[in-house]
Simulated scan of single mutants.
Amino acid sequence: MASTYSFDIVSDFDRQELVNTIDQTTREIGARYDLKDTKTTVELGEEAIVVNTDSDFTLQAIHTILQTKAAKRNLSLKIFDYGKVESASGNRVRQEIKLRKGISSELGKQISKLIRDEFKKVQASIQGDAVRVSAKSKDELQQVIQRLKQEDYPVALQFTNYR
């Protein structure tokens, strides 16, 4: 039996589910009567999604479709970081939606401080863009997970490598 138990707090998303979400969004744009002739493109890059469409109104409709499809595929809406709406050529609008991945060092410090303040027997250490939490009792780790789920952080948190 292990003397200490641990898990990692990460902020990540399933890339394939995001690809499927973009594909479904593109299909719905092509099928919807109000969006069919807008020549809208939704392109998935390595770290961002680029939406190019004809007006702010259709851009808002595309946001709604994208968020609905993402929610149905169990993707957190916190992974989307909407950038500024820019004017593109031909009276069109373009927006870059950055994809949030990883826990920033400031957020990692905030999480580990919360754990240190509320759970005396639990250790938290920042490891790159993840936070490793360890304790002698699995019950304490479960309490930490429940406490972190109550907080509203700007990124989606997942709990991995529970051992």
Rank of each mutant, 00 (worst) to 15 (best):
K136I: 02
F7G: 09
D56Q: 10
I22P: 05
A70Y: 03
S89I: 09
D54V: 12
L99C: 03
M1F: 09
R94C: 06
K113C: 00
Y153R: 11
F57L: 10
S6A: 13
K98T: 11
D37G: 04
E28H: 04
T40W: 02
L77D: 00
S125F: 00
A48S: 15
I97W: 03
E140M: 05
S11Q: 08
S125K: 11
V144N: 01
K72R: 15
T68R: 15
T53G: 04
D23Q: 08
G83E: 05
Q95W: 03
N20T: 09
V42Y: 01
F159V: 07
V133S: 05
A70I: 06
T160E: 12
S134W: 00
D56G: 15
T41D: 09
D54T: 10
Q127W: 02
K78D: 02
T25I: 13
T25E: 02
F13P: 11
T40P: 05
M1I: 12
P154L: 02
T41I: 03
S112T: 13
I22G: 12
L66F: 02
A2L: 13
A48H: 13
E28S: 15
Y33S: 08
T4Y: 04
Q127M: 13
R116P: 02
V51W: 00
A61K: 01
D152P: 02
I115G: 03
V122L: 01
V144H: 00
L99Y: 03
Q95C: 13
A130G: 08
Y33D: 12
D34G: 02
N52E: 10
I79H: 05
K149M: 06
L157W: 06
E46F: 07
A135V: 01
L157S: 10
R132G: 05
I62C: 02
S112V: 03
A70M: 08
K138R: 10
R15Y: 03
A48G: 00
R15F: 12
S87N: 11
A61W: 00
I29R: 04
L35M: 14
S87R: 13
L107P: 03
I126S: 07
A2R: 15
V133I: 15
R163C: 15
I145Q: 03
K78G: 05
V155N: 04
P154H: 06
L66M: 15
R94F: 05
S125E: 08
A31N: 15
S6N: 14
G90A: 11
A88W: 07
D23I: 08
E46N: 12
